[in-house]
Amino acid sequence: MVDITPRSLSTFQLQLRRFAQNRLAMISVALLALIAASCFFGPFAFPFTGEDADFDFIGAPIDLASPHPFGTDDFGRDLLLRVLEGGRISLAIGFLGAITAGFIGVLYGAVAGYAGGRTDRLMMRMVEILYGFPYVILVILLSLLFGGGNVALFAAIVFTLWLTPAVIVRAQAQSLSKREFVEAARAGGMTPWQIVLEHIVPNCASVVIVYGSLLVPEVILSESFLSFLGIGIKEPQASWGNLIQTGTAAMDTDLRLLLLPGILLALVLFCLNFIADGLRDAFDPNDR
């Protein structure tokens, strides 16, 4: 006998399917994947590194026939290669930062929201205190603490960005903990941790995915912002932020140094925002 029952789809699978029908979002996914792949694998195709100065080509203009198709900067370093290497750092910090901040925020918020009462009040007051901390001063303090560099930047970004997901998930967890299936889990003898991990967190998935997709561009932007100010990624290591900063310094004479990293950053942010938009359309429970 042929089994004619259709395969059961979870809400998650249905939502993914709806996302896949959003053309703009799918184009953004493809473009973003292309940019990410060229940033991560592209630099291997060059016979030199982004820190090698080529003294025959200092400040060379765009010339597709030369070994430096997009020219070089004032030190004779290949611009395209530096932009790709900078993208590596910016994208890595963006995604890792968003995932870490999201992870911490989701757990914290789910615990606070499910526990309720005094625990909840204590945990959320702490979040509010941290919200009040001036961001730039915090980054400077942390870079003093970690001796500057990527770790300090990463820590500072995660430290400030886990707060909002915590607040969002806490609100969701609060309403979920009043649903009867949570009571049923309690009646079945589940421990609070099991309930948080098996019943609360999975049901926050929609909110988390939507917010997380907005978090990635936020992290990339703040990395660029801090590197632009000079307290993020330091020369000679490239990032989109410090590349744009050197670009602005030379913008009166040579726009190219600003445009290449600037356009790539803008493209990535556009893609991420379109993806976030598509995810919200597909996952937002208010539509159903």
Binding site: R179, F181, G188
Partner: peptide, 19 residues
């Protein structure tokens, strides 16, 4: 609201049994 919308029926019934 008494069934977790993210779980399949089998998981819902197995939950308390497993615990």
């Amino acid at each position: 609201s008494s069934l977790n919308p993210r779980q399949q029926v089998a998981q819902i019934i197995a939950g308390p049994l497993g615990v």
